[in-house]
Amino acid sequence: MARFIVRRLFQAVVVLFFVSIFTFLIFQVIPDGTPALRLAGKSATPQTIAAVVRQWGFNKPIWVQYADMMGRIFTGSVISYSEHVNVLSQIQRGLPATLSLAIGAGVIWFVFAVVVGAVSAVRAGRISDRLLALLSLTAISTPTFVVGALGLYFLAWRVHIFPLSGYVPLSQSPGQWFMHLVLPWISLSVVYIGIYSRVLRSTMLDNMNEDYVRTARAKGLSGRRVLIRHVLRTSLIPIVSMWGLDFAGVIGGGAILVEVVFNLNGVGQYAAESIEALDVPPLLVIVMYGAILVVLIAALVDILYVWLDPRVRLEA
């Protein structure tokens, strides 16, 4: 087990290294990205530009620039081009909103997906199953921003149930925090509920035909216990690992659209604004931090998987 964890974490570091190089290079080659021009302003003289180049180190070899940038990313001292502010403090400002959104949505989509998936598996072939299948497919094929926009229009604009947009910190007013987040949570969760419930349904149907489920019934266990302890327990294993990855993905950038639609002022929205301004440093930082998070959670999920499924241990 220890060997497995060490190996897995080492892999994560290697992956991060390649991600960092890749992201760094992408922002080197994007058109109109020459940062000195942008930093120096619209009517800069060649002298100013040269000064900026020297000051920011754009004349150094590219690997030195890379090392500098990575160093700054990990010490949290990256400065943005457009507003000359510390990127980290900007991210920290947006983090509560993003985390509230991601964690809440993650819990919602997991719980609902398990319920919907389990119900359709138990009712397989009946009307309720078909209805849920239809709903799931609709959910999967509706883009997140459409769900968000529809929710805003009907539940916030036409009927004033929820506020139109914005984010209220939890510490300021838990009630308002909740009300402001309901629509974003739903918009973000809908797709995942659709996908996960479908996956869970088919995994459960497969597992229901397993010999050990028949054994469990032959032992005289109640139908519900067989379903929960034997069918659901094993069927959740793939779902849990999917969830880990998707959750990390949402924090690492997957929530951008929802944050923008609902004006939550989270990290995602900050990323979106930086893209618009072609402001490279915040993007680099957000992508790197996002990548670290995704890779770390992926490693954690693998470790969790081994814990959930004892069979994996031997092959580890």
Binding site: D211, Y212, A218, H230, T234, D309, P310, R311
Partner: peptide, 30 residues
Amino acid sequence: VRGGGMAMIFQNPMTALNPVQRVGAQIVEQ
């Protein structure tokens, strides 16, 4: 009656036991 007065042993012991449950727990459950 199932598993009580009348118990069953299945063909394939490789698949007839729950792979993610300790064997003791599987007997305890019954």
